[in-house]
Amino acid sequence: MTTNTSFSEADLEGLVLEWLGDGWRPAHGQDIAPGTGERESWDELLIRPRLLAALRRLNRGVPEQYLQQACAEIAAPASQDAITENYRMHKMFVDGYRMSYLDPDGTEQNPTLRLIGAEETDNDWIAVSQVTLVQGDYKRRFDVALYCNGMPVSIMELKRA
């Protein structure tokens, strides 16, 4: 008698979320779907409210309006090329986001905003299963998307063993 020891994709997904459980809070794609207060639309993977919350938490002293402006600028792609965009985001993760504004006294401020904190506990880590992305007629469901401070940092596609 043989025993079926292969995992389904759903089993593997659950196992991956369990393994990630020490640092990553598990969630389901429905939890971050548009209309939940998380993702703004089906065609965007970014979770803007979490990014804005991280900018506030990591960059105290920068006025709210400029943090909102930075969030919008960070989220806006500068290129349609995936490699170029990945490099742009990587640079911001490592070097921060440089901006300029005038404070209430009229003095120009040039802070470099941090997107990711130096300590693990400074950041919001979530592992989300079954994240749906819709762009025109193109619909894709990712098995697991890893987010740090609302920014997708990794996508996992799992296959049945």
Results as ranks from 00 to 15, higher is better:
65 Q>S: 11
65 Q>F: 04
67 L>F: 03
69 Q>Y: 05
70 A>L: 02
70 A>C: 05
71 C>M: 09
71 C>D: 13
72 A>F: 02
73 E>V: 05
73 E>A: 12
76 A>W: 07
76 A>Y: 06
77 P>N: 03
77 P>F: 01
78 A>Q: 14
79 S>V: 13
79 S>H: 11
80 Q>R: 12
83 I>M: 08
83 I>E: 10
85 E>L: 06
85 E>Y: 03
87 Y>W: 03
87 Y>A: 11
87 Y>D: 10
88 R>H: 08
88 R>D: 07
89 M>E: 03
91 K>I: 05
92 M>V: 05
93 F>P: 04
93 F>V: 06
94 V>M: 07
94 V>R: 11
95 D>W: 00
95 D>S: 13
96 G>I: 04
98 R>H: 13
98 R>D: 10
99 M>L: 15
100 S>N: 04
101 Y>P: 00
102 L>K: 13
102 L>G: 03
103 D>I: 03
104 P>K: 08
105 D>V: 00
106 G>D: 05
108 E>F: 02
110 N>G: 01
110 N>Q: 11
111 P>T: 06
112 T>V: 15
112 T>H: 02
113 L>N: 09
113 L>E: 10
113 L>W: 02
114 R>M: 08
114 R>A: 14
116 I>K: 14
117 G>C: 03
119 E>V: 02
120 E>G: 09
120 E>W: 11
121 T>D: 15
122 D>P: 14
122 D>W: 07
122 D>A: 14
